[in-house]
Simulated assay, not measured.
Amino acid sequence: MDVLGDVLAAMRAGKPYAGRTRCWEPWGVRFPADDSACCHVVLQGGCCLISAQGAPVTLGVGDVLFTAPGHGHTLADRPGSPLIDFRPSRDGALITELNIPGEGAATEILCVCYSFERLRPHPLLSDLPPVIHLPARVGHHPALRATIDLMGDELQRPRVGTEAILAPLIDMLLLYVLRAWIDEQSGHAGAGWAAARPTRSSPPR
């Protein structure tokens, strides 16, 4: 098993969940600092990331944001907007939807969260930065973009087989995000994730 396959195995501590979040200004959603990693993709409009790790980060359509386990964060239309706490569905459903009504411009975000095992964390997860931001760029990471399109379609029009299809797509989304980030580290100092690229003899865009 290669390094990303190891991470996928470590990820399977609990059921993931995914959904489309629709918000109208002013809005803000606070995600807790728990054992979950989150991936957000802006499908419409825009927002900003607010976290303790630095200045707010502006996100536009197509941008992908990954937050590592243990790092709480907030998504909002702008700093200072009213906040609500994000809570997944209590029935354990894979699909969790969130709608925040308002009078302003609309933003739509694809949100996915994964639970990791607290007692046996994968050592490479500690190498991840608190936040990975992959800006939308034409021609970059086509497999990641294709996975996002497939997930967005299933969540927009749930039908027979949607949950069975979403489960592997959620795994694929995480792996493609991590692979994209590894690729973007190429040329940096050979440590951590940047050193985890595959070779023919060892344990991957």
Rank of each mutant, 00 (worst) to 15 (best):
P121M: 08
L119G: 08
L110D: 00
G62R: 02
E103D: 15
P82R: 05
L75P: 01
D91C: 12
P56F: 04
F86M: 00
D77K: 06
R87V: 09
Y114S: 12
Q53G: 13
P142E: 02
P142Y: 03
A143Y: 09
P135E: 01
R90M: 10
S51M: 05
P82Q: 07
T107Q: 06
L119K: 11
G72F: 00
P79T: 11
R137I: 10
S51G: 09
T58C: 15
R120Q: 14
P101A: 15
H141G: 02
L75E: 02
G92Y: 05
A52K: 13
I100E: 13
P79D: 10
L49Y: 05
V112Y: 08
T96Q: 01
I109Y: 06
R118Q: 11
P130W: 13
R137Y: 09
G102N: 09
P69V: 12
I95G: 01
L125P: 09
G80E: 08
D91F: 10
P69K: 10
V131F: 12
D85G: 03
I84N: 04
L119I: 11
T96Y: 01
G92R: 03
P88C: 00
S51H: 08
G80Y: 06
P88A: 01
R78H: 11
D127N: 15
L124R: 09
P123L: 06
L49N: 02
C113M: 13
Q53V: 15
G72R: 00
S81K: 01
Y114P: 09
P142H: 00
A136I: 04
S115A: 12
D91A: 13
P130A: 15
E103I: 12
A52Q: 15
H133W: 15
H122A: 12
D85W: 01
L65N: 00
T58S: 13
T58Q: 13
V57S: 03
L59E: 02
L59W: 00
C111D: 06
L124V: 11
L49F: 05
L144M: 06
G102Y: 03
C113L: 14
G80T: 06
L94W: 03
L75Y: 03
Y114W: 15
V131M: 12
H73D: 02
D63T: 00
H141Y: 07
G72D: 01
L75C: 07
P135Q: 00
T58G: 07
L128P: 06
G54S: 12
L75Q: 01
R120I: 11
H141Q: 08
R120G: 14
P101E: 14
V112G: 11
T58V: 13
L94P: 02
D77G: 15
L124F: 13
C113S: 13
A52W: 08
P79N: 13
I109W: 03
P79Y: 08
H140T: 08
G62M: 03
D91Y: 06
L124M: 11
L94H: 05
P82C: 07
L59Q: 00
N99R: 15
H71D: 08
S115I: 07
T67K: 10
D91K: 10
H133V: 06
G62D: 02
R87N: 02
A68Y: 07
G60D: 11
H73Y: 07
R120C: 15
R137G: 07
A76H: 04
